[in-house]
């Protein structure tokens, strides 16, 4: 596997209502299918998903479109999706250019010691 391929790490919180998906690597035309495959199994880890994009070096418009599809699915299920990315990170620039809301930091309640069972 090439280093630039997208990785997804899922960390559900203790109460199971929320999960943090940490994404790394590059999401583009070549790697998008793998990104979708990696993300799909963890979609149902919790009703609310926080997708952390700090370590994403490239995020294509198609990658953004996929995240928006996930948002629609989660909202249909009564849950939700929150995108998180720090200042000056590439993914933040892309999301802001497209007018998609993004938070800078993870909510305090999710930051540490909240995980039970990494997948």
């Amino acid at each position: 596997m090439l280093l630039n391929e997208p990785t997804v790490v899922c960390t559900p919180t203790r109460d199971g209502r929320c999960a943090i998906l940490s994404v790394g690597g590059e999401v583009d035309l070549a790697t998008l299918p793998r990104f979708r495959r990696a993300l799909v199994p963890v979609l149902d880890a919790a009703s609310v998903l926080v997708v952390s994009l700090d370590d994403v070096g490239h995020l294509s418009a198609a990658g953004v479109r996929f995240l928006e599809e996930i948002r629609a699915v989660k909202e249909d299920q009564g849950g939700g999706l929150l995108l998180q990315c720090g200042e000056h990170r590439p993914a933040r620039l892309v999301l802001q250019a497209l007018g998609i809301p993004v938070i800078t930091e993870l909510p305090i309640s999710l930051r540490s010691g909240a995980s039970v069972t990494p997948p």
């Binding site: 583009d28 070549a30 490239h58 590439p90 620039l93």
Partner: peptide, 30 residues
């Protein structure tokens, strides 16, 4: 499909050579 990443790598090196700031580089690359 691999051309997208290959061009991104070449472009980044060329833009760095011009002296682009990192934020501008990311914008242009995307």
């Amino acid at each position: 499909a691999s051309a997208v990443r290959a061009s991104r790598v070449v472009l980044a090196e060329w833009l760095r050579g011009l002296g682009l700031d990192e934020a501008d580089l990311v914008s242009v690359q995307h």
